[in-house]
Design a protein around this nucleic acid. Structure first.
Lengths: 96, 96
DNA sequence: TTGTTGTTTGGTATAATGACCAAATTTTGA
DNA sequence: TCAAAATTTGGTCATTATACCAAACAACAA
């Protein structure tokens, strides 16, 4: 494996890791329905604002979501809807 | 979020986490081509046998791969080929 | 200006991961 | 049997993740 292959692999891994956490995956599924402000995600997850904010940063850095500040609130939305297709496959894995 | 929703989420997360590591993702991509013995994966990754073996166990426990012992060697193969479809989406994420 | 709401940042303690080494296991071959 | 080859298991240690608290910031309202 050369240096370039390694960096491609690292980049893909970053996207997968971003979604590989229950709170983050839940948020991705919510955002698939439509944009949400941080407050709504905090409500749903019952986690600290600081925690949710950091999770969102991870998703954002991975390129999975984007944010939009409107007034006092920040709205997050799914940047790449195809990530959901994958979840069908994950469900297939779960069924064996 | 009730107990059942949480456990479904945990199960999906397990599958994602299993692939969210460069060595494991590389192995999944190799296995997509065809089955491989542990020795071949060790060769390609340049990691310890023990390390690779543990990575494979994680993939197996997640339901992503299966193993087949033939003689002295153990061959691993991809149990759910659709996981690869997802990688196309990941690549889309990478392109922004 | 001051206060309030919504969000992010910094810090810290704790838990989970991942890499290696050594040792145990399993299968085959001499 | 005994030894070698392929793999797994157990243990340790360093690194990374994650949760919470406190404090900082930004936008708006009084």
């Amino acid at each position: 494996m050369n240096k370039q292959e390694k960096s491609v692999l690292a980049a893909k891994t970053k996207v997968l890791k971003a979604m590989a956490h229950p709170a983050r995956l839940w948020m991705v599924e919510q955002l698939a329905v439509g944009e949400r402000c941080v407050c709504e995600l905090v409500d749903g997850l019952e986690l600290d604002y600081s925690t949710v904010s950091k999770h969102l940063l991870i998703l954002k850095n991975a390129g999975v979501v984007e944010d939009d500040k409107r007034g006092k609130q920040v709205f997050y939305s799914l940047k790449v809807p195809c990530v959901l297709n994958f979840m069908h496959c994950v469900e297939a894995v779960l069924k064996g």
